[in-house]
Nucleic acid binder design. Structure first.
Lengths: 195, 195
DNA sequence: CTCATAAGATACTAATTAGTATGTTTTCAA
DNA sequence: TTGAAAACATACTAATTAGTATCTTATGAG
């Protein structure tokens, strides 16, 4: 019962890699299997079909990463503007999990799968929702301790910030890292206007 | 030689519709054909393969629309902030060409095809590039006639604006039209900070 | 140890895919 | 009017797809 957990994880991780590059629909199960030492029998033992694997990908890999990289940095924040900027800047700097060319796995999945599959839609909506809420709460706390202007609407601002991130991951696919830099500079201007 | 031009256009338009909803890769040629009164012979008479059709889709449909809806409104602009805001607001209001659930056809194609196919990448890069340039020039003209602050970097701002639009189309797929409203309000705040 | 079940391997299937080969019809210039 | 090319139709193919049926092997509780 030990090894099997590992093979399941291996399948998920390899799938994650391939789907990140090629997209969910055009990454075939055979693609995944032939890229690693696992057979179809193992795959369909662990997942009843491709969709279940795709959803497991979201809950078992994407969600925990989201918590770690996008929620935690905000929860213990004294200065919302600094924290939020740093969170986004760190995301865009992270070349271990991301490649400009391929954008952001979560954003990609939203783009591709959200309109096509209600289960994907639900799972991804939860992720986006949690992130947006975390930003909103962070800004709200900022209003309380005077770091954020009283006329600022935290929910609106959070939606705007999340949108901006998703967008720069998209445009980055076309124009490369320079857009990241431009975006970050203007993003800082925007954030400062929230004081 | 008259009718054939129309069938070619019909194929492109129907393809555009289906690809907008399902994505390029998972819209099969058979899907397209069975959704209209055209046979495989006609399809492959007009396009040597699926890729050529996809690229024609960009140059013959997407590009002209981009010119009309995204470039023209800016070229004759006296007040950049007003024009740019109106352009984006009108885009997000347009329910004839767009559906929140399915986002923006161009953004979708970028997300899906840009990393996968160099020809798609090039075509889409041109579109994004032209739009960004148009916004940049509009802001530059604004600097000259005093509508835009002298310390503003038009190229940076343009990249930021385009990113924001792409992003809200993505997040809109998840959270629906309310994000459009939030986004527009904060976008206006940002634009006003450019004076 | 041992055997029931978990975990994985192998070989298939039916459907779908892009694309082709080859046919028929339509158009329009001479 | 006519005939050559343009425009389209039909019937195929080979590859790929998700998924299944049926095996074999590994594991760990008793």
């Amino acid at each position: 019962m030990r090894k099997s957990v590992q093979t399941r994880l291996n399948i998920l991780q390899k799938s994650f890699e391939l789907i990140y590059v090629k997209g969910y629909q055009s990454t075939s199960i055979d693609d995944i299997l032939s890229s690693m030492e696992v057979t179809k029998g193992a795959f369909f033992y662990h997942f009843k079909n491709k969709e279940e694997m795709g959803l497991a990908l979201i809950t078992d890999l994407l969600y925990p990463r989201m918590k770690h990289f996008l929620i935690e940095p905000l929860s213990s924040s004294a200065d919302p503007i600094k924290s939020i900027y740093q969170m986004i800047a760190n995301l865009l700097k992270d070349t271990e999990h991301f490649d400009v060319k391929y954008g952001c796995p979560a954003v990609n999945l939203i783009e591709e799968m959200s309109p096509l599959n209600t289960a994907f839609h639900k799972h991804l909506k939860d992720i986006v929702g949690e992130w947006t809420d975390a930003i909103e709460k962070c800004l709200l706390k900022g209003k309380e301790n005077g770091k954020i202007g009283l006329m600022i609407n935290p929910a609106e601002a959070a939606a705007y910030i999340v949108s901006g991130y998703a967008g720069v991951r998209n445009i980055g696919k076309m124009l490369g890292t320079p857009v990241y830099q431009s975006y970050l500079k203007q993003f800082k201007l925007y954030l400062n206007s929230l004081t």
